[in-house]
């Protein structure tokens, strides 16, 4: 069996794949956070809860309505996006005039409510969610064994990340969004409905989180706590990348995921803290983040 630095290559590739999967979720979630923060100037603490909600909607759809994975992949983001739209209209929009920290505190409260409620109903243990039959099994790539579902997660998240990036950078709607990020008052003066844009942006960000949640359901179990533990790591990812750039958020997500996977191979004890350590180093060397601008 071939080895690199004394590590058998299949184990190495396996951990890189796991890192790539985690990185996919970091990228999807930090992308959503960056989109929301760019326009609303709100750090959406409920992002993790919305990710969890996406997974639970898929789980409930399957178990109570018999709606399969593929439909859930579309329906769950819509449902969660709709909930987010209501939250933005009724609560978040009242806080745009005050310090941005209140947005963080409000979404933190909402995250606690969602998480606590689901924990009350479903318990802290995870619920299994089977991968769709089309994606079960695996292929032997010669140098490693690849479970098809995991390959699908990487491809799907890449497609969504690139799609969102194109939407923001290349379309008319995206142009409005970028313009409103720079100067909301001026854009409104040109007749663009900025409040609607804010609402839709929050909905879009939450829908992205829900999509990630459905993708995650068959890999990790569907559990009330799946979101918050993840979102704190994603915060660190966001600090490393800096929130100035959408592409930066995506790249940082994947790279840190892979680095975390590699740490699991070479020094497993540090794997849970490696991203935080990287964050600390970045803060020392380049406080604005790798892709960020000084504000």
């Amino acid at each position: 069996m071939s080895t690199i630095f004394g590590i058998p290559t299949p184990a190495l590739y396996g951990q890189i794949l796991i890192g790539l999967i985690n990185g996919s979720f970091y990228a999807l979630l930090s992308l959503g956070l960056a989109v929301i923060f760019g326009l609303l100037r709100v750090i959406n603490f409920a992002h993790g809860a919305q990710y969890m909600l996406g997974a639970f909607v898929a789980y409930l759809l399957l178990n109570y309505l018999g709606i399969n994975y593929w439909l859930a992949l579309i329906v769950a983001p819509l449902v969660v996006g709709a909930v987010a739209v209501v939250i933005e209209r009724t609560m978040l929009s009242r806080l745009y005039g005050v310090d941005h920290l209140y947005g963080l505190l409000l979404t933190f409260g909402l995250a606690l409510i969602l998480e606590g409620a689901f924990r009350h109903w479903f318990g802290a243990a995870g619920q299994p969610y089977a991968a769709p039959s089309q994606l079960s099994g695996g292929v032997n790539l010669g140098f490693m064994f690849l479970p098809i579902y995991r390959g699908w997660v990487v491809v799907a998240s890449l497609v969504i990340c690139i799609g969102t990036w194109l939407l923001i950078e290349k379309t008319q709607l995206g142009a409005y969004l970028r313009a409103a990020t720079e100067n909301a008052t001026l854009v409104q003066a040109f007749g663009v409905n900025v409040p609607l844009l804010l609402t839709l942006t929050y909905g879009l960000g939450a829908a992205l989180a829900a999509f990630a949640g459905v993708l995650a359901a068959p890999i990790y179990q569907v559990s009330p706590l799946m979101g918050t533990n993840l979102i704190i790591v994603v915060f660190a990812v966001v600090v490393v990348g800096g929130m100035g750039s959408i592409l930066g958020a995506i790249i940082t997500g994947y790279v840190l995921g892979i680095l975390e996977g590699l740490t699991k191979v070479f020094y497993p004890e540090a794997s849970s803290i490696v991203i935080f350590v990287i964050m600390a180093i970045v803060l020392l060397v380049r406080p604005a983040g790798l892709f960020g601008r000084e504000e």
């Binding site: 209140y102 505190l105 409000l106 409260g109 909402l110 409510i113 606590g116 409620a117 009350h120």
Partner: peptide, 19 residues
């Protein structure tokens, strides 16, 4: 009554109504 939910609700009320 789940304490987490209670804390979340107080959070939301505080932030929205009496900062």
């Amino acid at each position: 009554f789940p304490v987490t939910v209670l804390i979340g609700i107080i959070f939301v009320i505080c932030v929205l109504l009496f900062r």
